[in-house]
Amino acid sequence: MSNDLVIKDLHINVQGKPIIKGLNLNVNQGEIHALMGPNGSGKSTLANGLMGHPLYDIDAGEVIFNGINVLELEPNERAKLGLFLAFQYPTAIPGVSLANFLRLAVSAVRSESTNGTENAELIPMREFRRELRDKMRQLGVDDSFATRYLNDGFSGGEKKRAEILQLAMLEPKIAILDETDSGLDIDAVRIVGESVNRLIGPELGVLIITHYPRLLDYIRPQFVHILLDGRIVESGGWELTQLLEAEGYEPVREKHGIAEAE
């Protein structure tokens, strides 16, 4: 398949410190993967590095997406290819309404041009509004979201729901959910989990990056990977989450001889 996300021997450092140390992973459209790891194992570094955050330096390896090595591409060019990151800590953009922002973003990712530096032609307002309203209803998001300033004064749960709404509107091929359950109470986790579930289908591949298995009660992955010290040390199915739930990361650490990160 051409829309695979193929990560080969990836090494990422942050301010000179190696964090991801040779990571291999394939995610296809239609698949749901969970990448689980304790704090400090490199989960968010991987997420940000895949999307092209300028502070995350790629030392070695390849990330092939859609048949293209994306490591040289700007974040917006990766987005246009169909990669999406739901942020752990979405940034507030005061004064910019969610609807205005999303209209530009949707126009950009759908525009024919692959040149990431040209400004996109806006999709017609009526068409956009209708689509946004439909998606908001589908996800049970309140209408007021559209006119609120992006993530500005949003509660933790609202920010995560806004991320999922963006996912729904941008229709990526592969979505990375970075700790989407963090900081949420159990009801909010359920709401976000159910929202993601509604979007899952053969066109969408999902990489759920998480510390706790609880989001996985709502989004059932076919593939589960355990990340320790910048590498995937175990891959398997649902049984791995059960193991972690029962025993924590300690037995995995011992098995692979990796000490707890400070």
Partner: peptide, 25 residues
């Protein structure tokens, strides 16, 4: 802020313009 907006498909110029327009809103 730039990374966030660019990760949604906006060019760097579109992203900065959007931040500035938000600032003077």
């Amino acid at each position: 802020q730039l990374f966030y907006l660019m990760s949604r498909g906006l060019s760097e110029e579109e992203a900065s313009t959007m931040i500035v327009n938000g600032f003077i809103e």
